[in-house]
Write a protein that binds this DNA or RNA. Structure first.
Length: 507
RNA sequence: GGCCCGGUGGUCAAGCGGUUAAGACACGGCCCUUUCACGGCUGUAACACGGGUUCGAGUCCCGUCCGGGUCACCA
């Protein structure tokens, strides 16, 4: 992987990193990190650390390359900013063999060339007869050099505008592309290479086998092709991935760093999505047969999935939060509660400090709350991400307990008080679940409610409602909401005192 | 605008010249059920359009339309 340290890493990077990692490790290859810091204007402090730690959060670990404490591997340096001599040597060689040349044009001069090209309606750019310095004599070059005129090194392209060439892309298949004919800059005035040149030189020297990058690079592939050919080097396997998209006002567009918070990895960390869920989601949009595989091998380690490039989509996928949530539910239900608790606690320490103490003080209760309904063959799948998990159990904590839902429409406040009073009178904390519920049936019947919903459905006019309505009243008293997991279990976790207090407060 | 890449239900997608055009998510209904989930059953819903080629086209070819990308001494 070769990101540029221009800010924080995003979902698109992660997506690509995933492909890199799977491809490398599946074939017993090396997954390495190179930092593309050739643009000093855009460099951001701390970005490298952020890249490494974010990827680690998602369980992607590099075998080689740049790391937090120095570099690992024999193909360094791994920072392009430290590879200056290498690029200059290669560039020098190209100049010597007449395949590159210094260009002294200023920005203004390039602008003028462009204007003239526009006015005569030809393609813009620095090429052919428009390339002023293409055939500069040795004397002129020396003269300019002596005058300290700033210059760049350009490739002396041999392509024509009419030429095309064929190249195979591991994701898109065989492509027929126009040949490059532009004398592109390979070394900038500050001696630092452009991406195009650095890519070719580094990937060859570092013996990169697969280049996985976004499809925005497809249009510059001809440049890279010509550079590899000019240097007589073997081409890597190119894999151009589709962009992650988003629907915005009915328009499908590329996910943007500035406008879309869900592109930032921070977004998922803040909400507390489990890295495993994000991995799993990414893999489902990465490889169309992953879901099928997952269905067939629900308990298999994700690394056992055989990732294949030709199963990668070549049209941009819309990011689907619904799907991520669904996957997350299925992932979390398989993770032991103890681990979920630890994960929740770690998340709280980073993003919700005020609940840390409560989580620690009531660890046992939290564990029990998280466990409700999980160990049957049809486990509940309530848990999605930490923020949501906390909301899901928050009513346990007195600080967060609040009555938010209303009683059923058929039950007035006075009626509710009556029912709750009866509940409190017969409540015995030691009752088992069926004893407990039998008592509720009794309360229901005595107050004119059907003991079973079916009876009520048969003769609605005979009852005020059914036992479910009574349960809702009790539920609201205990948890403040009209829906929750089993009340009896919740009461056992909360303890008798809390149960009685909460019911009493509504009478 | 030139060039490039795309276009199968709301979303992700299988499909590789002959299928009743899979599956997952989302949405609706039913069942289970004290609520909510879970689970089971079930429903709505798609080959962008127009021409070819072919006995036969979602699949191959051409055009149109639509979407995306790219046209820097950024990556």
């Amino acid at each position: 992987m070769a990101p540029s340290p221009t800010g924080f890493i995003h979902l698109g990077n992660l997506y690509g990193a995933f492909v890199d990692e799977r491809l490398a490790h599946q074939s017993k290859g090396v997954f390495m990190l190179r930092i593309e810091d050739t643009d000093d204007k855009r460099k951001v402090e701390g970005a490298i650390k952020a890249i490494i730690s974010s990827l680690e959060y998602f369980d992607l670990k590099f075998d080689e390359g740049a790391s937090i404490d120095g570099a690992v591997g024999n193909y360094g340096p791994y920072f392009q900013s430290n590879r200056g001599e290498i690029y200059q040597t290669v560039a020098k060689y190209l100049v010597e063999v007449g395949r590159a040349y210094p260009c002294f044009c200023t920005e203004e001069e390039l602008g003028e060339i462009r204007e003239r090209q526009v006015s005569v309606n030809v393609n813009t750019g620095y090429y052919g007869k428009w390339a002023r310095d293409r055939e500069l004599s040795l004397e002129d070059i020396e003269k300019h050099l002596k005058n300290n005129i700033s210059f760049v090194i350009r490739l002396k392209s041999r392509g024509n505008q009419e030429d095309t060439f064929e190249i195979s892309d591991a994701i898109r298949g065989c492509l027929s592309l126009p040949a490059n004919y532009q004398d592109v800059v390979i070394l900038k005035a500050n001696g630092i290479p452009t991406y195009h040149f650095a890519h070719v030189v580094d990937d060859h020297l570092m013996r990169i086998t697969h280049v996985v990058r976004g499809e925005e690079w497809l249009s510059t592939l001809p440049i890279h092709f010509e550079l590899f050919r000019t240097l007589g080097w073997e081409l890597p396997v190119y894999c151009h991935t589709a962009h992650l998209m988003k629907i915005d006002n009915g328009v499908k567009r590329k996910l943007s760093k500035r406008k879309d918070p869900e592109l930032g990895l921070e977004y998922y960390m803040k909400l507390g999505y489990h890295p495993e869920a994000v991995r799993e989601y990414l893999l489902t949009i990465l490889n169309s047969n992953f879901e099928e595989w997952r269905n067939e091998s629900p308990d298999s380690d994700i690394d056992n999935f055989q990732f294949t490039l030709n199963k990668m989509s070549n049209s941009g996928a819309l990011f689907d939060l619904n799907k991520l949530n669904d996957i997350s539910q299925n992932v979390l239900v398989k993770i032991p509660v103890k681990e979920i608790y630890d994960f929740l606690l770690r998340w709280a320490k980073d993003y919700k400090r005020e609940i840390v103490d409560s989580l620690i003080d009531y660890k046992d209760a939290v564990l029990k709350m998280l466990s409700i309904g999980r160990d049957s063959d049809k486990p509940r799948k309530d848990l999605i991400y930490c923020q949501q998990i906390f909301e899901h159990i928050s009513y346990f904590f007195d600080d967060y307990f609040k009555v938010v839902d209303k009683y059923p429409e058929n039950i007035e406040d006075a009626e509710a008080r009556k029912l709750l009073k009866a509940y409190l009178e017969t409540y015995n904390h030691g009752d088992d679940q069926s004893q407990w519920f039998d008592k509720i049936r009794v309360i229901a019947t005595e107050n004119g409610y059907a003991a079973k919903p079916k009876e009520f459905k048969k003769n609605p006019q005979m009852y005020k409602g059914h036992v479910g309505d009574v349960s809702v009243v009790i539920r609201i008293a205990i948890v403040g909401r009209s829906s929750s997991p089993d009340i009896w279990e919740l009461q056992q976790i909360m303890g008798e005192k809390k149960v009685r207090e909460r019911v009493q407060s509504l009478i």
